[in-house]
Design a protein around this nucleic acid. Structure first.
Lengths: 192, 192
DNA sequence: AAATACGTTAAAAATAAATTTAATAAAGTT
DNA sequence: AACTTTATTAAATTTATTTTTAACGTATTT
């Protein structure tokens, strides 16, 4: 009996560790260092809020590291501070909805990318038009300006598209096009 | 006349530099260092293929740096080697279609992320089910296993969604939902 | 009010990443 | 075949990032 209990605990740990590793490994995509990714993944399996000391013990790192890591995770809105009567320590809980996380992250990033580039494109276009208007401009230069303009027009349409994608993700509209399927636990083909 | 010609050249350079800076700044999103981003941005405005020596002169960096940077850009498919009769040097040309670039990059990344995590989730689910099946498992442990399972089910549906998003981007289906608008140069409201 | 418990900032140390110079390899030319 | 030209790899250096230890500030308890 004791034997079996211990075995179950081990199984649970194996299960969680596998997912933690894989989350930590893929989280670099979201602009987060491996350690911070691992912290998030660890919190993902905690069903009650954790203190900085809990985290430091769990990961074997220093408290200031946890402090800054957790702030980073708060910045990208995937960890929240929660309040609980009676304790003086700060408590943190992971946001477990990956859709939230995804939307927020790419929504922000893409919007920023689009805006920044559109500003530069507009500025550049102004200059290029000026070159073309000027009758004194040499033929070769004019051709380059025209080619640049053409290219930038395409780039601009990409930026607009990106802006719209970001918006449709932030607003949730995208889920009308690509619905979220609740997967059926029965047919969980772990293929092979 | 000479005066004006020089002015036009300056304008062209200002125009290009503005866009180069902004591309270089936003390219970190695509998992590329600032220098490599800047190299791509520089190539973006070259209308004929460039050699490693051209690049090294343009950016004031060493040739090996250019060699590795250009390989990275080839890896993510936004620079291609082109062949030209008569020259012994390798020549490189930037892929200028940002949609290509975007599709390839996120398609690959997301597919990898989804696959990796799904594998871990399946593995974990197997273990967790084992725990629940075992009658000797304590109540507390059983509850944790159940909660984990529930969480992972949600995570799995996120991974599937991500896979589908990746596929719809790779296949181009997404453009039916979010069409590419050719922007009209007339109404180029550089707002304000 | 003194002592303690927390969290954060600052400086220092350790680690990792980017870049260069030097050495090697491969191919083309004479 | 010896000599060049070109690109790449390897080692060494520089630079940037991450992490820690130490110091600080603020709030809470006694």
């Amino acid at each position: 009996m004791e034997e079996n209990q211990k075995n179950s605990e081990e199984l649970l740990e194996q299960a969680e560790r596998a997912v933690i590793n894989s989350i930590a490994e893929t989280m670099d995509l979201y602009g987060v260092t491996p350690s911070i990714g691992r912290l998030y993944a660890t919190l993902y399996f905690k069903h009650d809020p954790q203190t900085l000391d809990d985290m430091k013990d769990e990961l074997g790192m220093s408290k200031p590291s946890m402090s800054t890591a957790v702030r980073k995770l708060q910045d990208i809105n995937i960890v929240k501070k929660v309040w609980k009567k009676g304790t003086r320590k700060d408590l943190f809980l992971a946001e477990k909805n990956f859709f939230h996380y995804f939307s927020q992250f790419f929504g922000d990033k893409w919007e920023r990318e689009a805006k920044l580039n559109l500003t530069a494109i507009d500025y550049a276009k102004e200059k290029l038009v000026q070159i073309l208007k000027d009758e004194e401009t040499g033929e070769e230069l004019k051709q380059r300006a025209e080619q640049d303009l053409k290219q930038l027009e395409e780039y601009r349409s990409y930026c607009h598209w990106l802006e719209q994608l970001a918006q449709s993700i932030e607003s949730g509209e995208i889920f009308e096009f690509l619905p979220i399927e609740k997967t059926n636990p029965e047919e969980t083909d772990s293929n092979k």
